Simulated scan of single mutants.
Amino acid sequence: MAKRDYYEVLGLDKSASAQDIKRAYRKLAREYHPDINQEADAADKFKEIGEAYEVLSDEQKRAQYDRFGFEGASQFGGGDFQGGFGDIFDMFFGGGGRRQDPNAPRRGEDYQYVVDLDFMESVTGKTETIELEIEVECDTCMGSGAKPGTKPETCGRCGGSGVETVEQNTILGRMVNQRPCSQCHGTGKTIKEKCPTCHGSGHVKKTQRVEVKIPAGIDNGQQIRMSGKGGPGFNGGPAGDLYVVVRVRGHEIFERVDQHIAMEMPVTFTQAALGAEIEVPTVHGKVSLKVPAGTQTGSKFRLRGKGMPSVRGGGHGDQYVTIVIMTPTNMTDRQKELLREFEEISGEAGVEEQHGLFQKMKKFFSH
């Protein structure tokens, strides 16, 4: 089979960084490792991936390959998979076969929970009570997994280490692999008489109510970390954490932009032309806004301190109001008559003097 470009093998382009190369290699090596992937061509692909990584992970070899192709790489012994075993052992064998004590304290799992908020609830904040189904230590066996009056015994297969050694012949040669013991599943202990409540797991599921204080000003996608509210630890290890992810529903009027709020405010033609004092809604209630005479559609006004509060305290953002002039529809004959009269009195001159856009348009069409 003809050799494929090394960048193509790893799914990268020539601008890839060293970190990109390592990340791509680890992902593909894990996917095509012969011990994991049973496809007929997995071993060949695994070898191809290792060969590409050996060259591209070495700056000197990579430079020669980029300049001269496979011939350049072969000057340094490239083109045949020789290295990468350190990374493979790190991925598959726990860092070169290092043993971990199965009875050592282990931290519990982290949990995640999603809370949906209305827009206004994100402004004011709230206290939410959520229900979680978590695993807690079994009260019957006190976490041992054994029937009361009995206790777990040291695993006879692994001698309590929790791992067993397996030798395999692969395309890369004879490899020694350490994996969790098939008899005790890595615990180092066996239970002859299991607890009738937890069936040997040492944990039972329980519904727990947790009170979450959601701060004012929280944004969509932000999360709250609650230390120690996750899954229980093992062998006396600490509990995991609970991460509450907040999703904020959109609002029909307000749009959040960082800590600020944007909105469009409709005004009548008369209000924009003559000026007016109007009421504008904000997340903190209604406020008065003076619209000066001659205001144009698209004009923006800033309401200081009327935006979102900071989740860390220290003030509020602002609210930006964009004016939208509403063109009247379904006018009466009298209204149309008055507008025509207004147009006759105003003429084009007054408009052209005020608006440079009219001058630009007039100049354009005069060519």
Score class of each variant (00 low, 15 high):
residue 29 A to M: 13
residue 29 A to L: 09
residue 29 A to E: 09
residue 30 R to M: 11
residue 31 E to R: 11
residue 31 E to L: 08
residue 31 E to N: 00
residue 32 Y to C: 06
residue 32 Y to S: 09
residue 33 H to V: 07
residue 33 H to W: 13
residue 37 N to W: 00
residue 37 N to E: 08
residue 37 N to G: 05
residue 38 Q to R: 11
residue 38 Q to Y: 08
residue 39 E to N: 10
residue 39 E to R: 09
residue 40 A to S: 10
residue 41 D to E: 14
residue 41 D to R: 07
residue 42 A to Y: 03
residue 42 A to M: 05
residue 43 A to R: 05
residue 43 A to Y: 00
residue 43 A to H: 03
residue 44 D to V: 09
residue 45 K to T: 10
residue 45 K to Y: 08
residue 46 F to N: 05
residue 46 F to M: 04
residue 47 K to H: 09
residue 47 K to M: 10
residue 47 K to W: 08
residue 48 E to M: 11
residue 48 E to W: 03
residue 48 E to S: 12
residue 49 I to F: 02
residue 49 I to Y: 00
residue 50 G to K: 09
residue 50 G to R: 12
residue 51 E to Q: 13
residue 51 E to K: 08
residue 52 A to L: 07
residue 54 E to L: 03
residue 54 E to T: 09
residue 54 E to W: 07
residue 54 E to K: 00
residue 55 V to G: 03
residue 55 V to I: 14
residue 55 V to F: 03
residue 56 L to F: 05
residue 58 D to I: 00
residue 59 E to N: 10
residue 59 E to V: 12
residue 59 E to F: 06
residue 60 Q to D: 11
residue 60 Q to F: 05
residue 60 Q to V: 11
residue 60 Q to I: 10
residue 60 Q to R: 14
residue 61 K to T: 01
residue 61 K to W: 08
residue 61 K to R: 14
residue 61 K to A: 07
residue 61 K to I: 01
residue 62 R to Q: 06
residue 62 R to T: 01
residue 63 A to E: 15
residue 64 Q to V: 04
residue 64 Q to R: 12
residue 65 Y to L: 03
residue 66 D to T: 09
residue 67 R to V: 10
residue 68 F to A: 11
residue 69 G to C: 06
residue 70 F to Q: 14
residue 71 E to Y: 01
residue 71 E to H: 04
residue 71 E to P: 02
residue 72 G to R: 01
residue 73 A to I: 04
residue 73 A to G: 05
residue 76 F to M: 04
residue 76 F to I: 03
residue 77 G to H: 03
residue 77 G to P: 02
residue 77 G to Q: 05
residue 77 G to Y: 02
residue 78 G to M: 02
residue 78 G to I: 01
residue 78 G to D: 01
residue 79 G to S: 06
residue 79 G to T: 03
residue 80 D to E: 15
residue 81 F to G: 06
residue 82 Q to W: 10
residue 82 Q to M: 12
residue 83 G to W: 04
residue 84 G to W: 03
residue 85 F to W: 13
residue 87 D to E: 13
residue 87 D to R: 03
residue 87 D to C: 00
residue 88 I to Q: 00
residue 90 D to Y: 08
residue 91 M to T: 12
residue 91 M to Y: 04
residue 91 M to S: 11
residue 92 F to V: 09
residue 93 F to W: 08
residue 94 G to C: 01
residue 95 G to E: 11
residue 95 G to V: 04
residue 95 G to C: 06
residue 96 G to Y: 02
residue 96 G to P: 01
residue 97 G to T: 04
residue 98 R to L: 12
residue 98 R to D: 07
residue 99 R to K: 13
residue 99 R to P: 00
residue 99 R to L: 15
residue 101 D to W: 04
residue 101 D to T: 06
residue 101 D to S: 13
residue 102 P to T: 07
residue 102 P to F: 02
residue 102 P to C: 08
residue 103 N to E: 14
residue 103 N to A: 15
residue 103 N to W: 00
residue 104 A to K: 11
residue 104 A to L: 05
residue 105 P to C: 12
residue 105 P to S: 13
residue 106 R to F: 10
residue 106 R to T: 15
residue 107 R to A: 07
residue 107 R to V: 06
residue 109 E to Y: 13
residue 109 E to I: 14
residue 110 D to Q: 07
residue 111 Y to V: 10
residue 112 Q to A: 15
residue 112 Q to R: 15
residue 112 Q to Y: 13
residue 112 Q to N: 14
